[in-house]
């Protein structure tokens, strides 16, 4: 089977993968988790039996790395994020929103971050989380409803 050069996957998907992980584990750990995700993907790449949904495959690995990290270091609730260096001071409320996303119940957090930071369609969110598509939609809806209370 002809797989595309691995770098083309990195070019296309690294940014949404990073933003997804940023939402899952915070800004410091996201850097490590992105490296671990890409290394694991590279090591498994030659063994792929199809090149159908490489994005979904990458996010499945990233999800696993994010979960591993949360289990190892935090007791489910990531510590509050310091502001990203990229954020100017007036966007304190952005940092608040990152933190609120991080404190959502795990399934809602995963679904919301996959949807809006990873930019994944619901079919892929369902596959990554091993749940049904309606359940994926429900988790996103519930997560947004909870966030909307504080940010409108």
């Amino acid at each position: 089977m002809n797989l595309p050069p691995f770098q083309t996957l990195v070019d296309e998907h690294a940014r949404p993968l990073y933003r997804f992980l940023r939402g899952m584990v915070g800004p410091v750990a996201a850097d490590d988790c992105l490296q671990e995700t890409l290394l694991a993907a590279l090591r498994a790449y030659n063994g792929l039996s199809h090149d159908g949904n490489l994005r979904g495959w990458l996010f499945t690995i990233a999800h696993r790395k994010g979960i591993d990290h949360v289990r190892r270091y935090a007791k489910e609730i990531p510590s509050p994020s310091p502001p990203d260096r990229a954020s100017p001071p007036q966007t304190v409320r952005d940092t608040d929103l990152w933190n609120r996303v991080a404190r959502l119940p795990p399934k809602q957090r995963t679904a919301v971050t996959l949807r809006y930071l990873g930019d994944l369609p619901y079919a892929d969110i369902a596959a990554v989380m091993s749940i049904s598509e309606p359940a994926a939609r429900q988790n996103v809806r519930a997560g947004l409803a909870s966030l909307r209370k504080d940010f409108t």
């Binding site: 992105l34 990203d84 260096r85 930071l117």
Partner: peptide, 28 residues
């Protein structure tokens, strides 16, 4: 599209190119 969803989509985040460089060096 709800307003809160848009705000999440547009959240600013750090540049990830440093992580990509470290990944590449380790991979080689």
């Amino acid at each position: 599209m709800s307003k809160i969803a848009d705000r999440i989509r547009n959240l600013p985040s750090d540049d990830h190119t440093g992580a990509l460089e470290r990944f590449a060096r380790r991979a080689v």
